[in-house]
């Protein structure tokens, strides 16, 4: 499994990667991008099985990223963010996200949302 983690915080990218390993999902390869624009560039050159994206990022935020990538890519996208309000989650799903995980999260929470998408 190849995973793309899109987050402007290098620390959060490491946290998510560690969470995936702890959840037993163990990606063969983890690609990283620091914002939505970079995420789209990575996807133009690589096929991935799962995308995990933050919400608030500079240059291109998570919502715009999902909206843009859905024009050509149908890979499952899960938003990982502190924005846990129902309206925000509904907005993300409307844009094409397949799931949402609120920080702080446990490996079980990752499994619960990501497992059915793989």
């Amino acid at each position: 499994m190849r995973v793309l983690i899109v987050d402007d915080s290098a620390v959060m990218r490491k946290i998510v990667a560690k969470g995936l390993r702890q959840a037993g999902l163990k990606p063969d390869e983890t690609l990283e991008a620091s914002d939505g624009s970079e995420g789209l560039r990575v996807l133009a050159e690589n096929n991935v099985d799962l995308i995990l994206a933050d919400w608030n990022m500079p240059n291109m935020d998570g919502l715009t990223f999902v909206q843009e990538l859905r024009k050509s890519v149908q890979t499952p996208v899960v938003m990982i963010t502190t924005e846990g309000g129902e309206n925000k989650v509904a907005q993300a799903m409307e844009m094409g996200a397949n799931g949402h995980i609120k920080k702080p999260f446990t490996p079980d929470m990752l499994n619960e949302v990501i497992g059915p998408l793989l």
Binding site: S9, V11, M12, I15, T81, T82, E83, G84, K103, P104
Partner: peptide, 10 residues
């Protein structure tokens, strides 16, 4: 930054 972000989000 991520710690205060998660605290405020929660």
């Amino acid at each position: 930054a991520e710690i205060v972000n998660m605290l405020c989000g929660g």
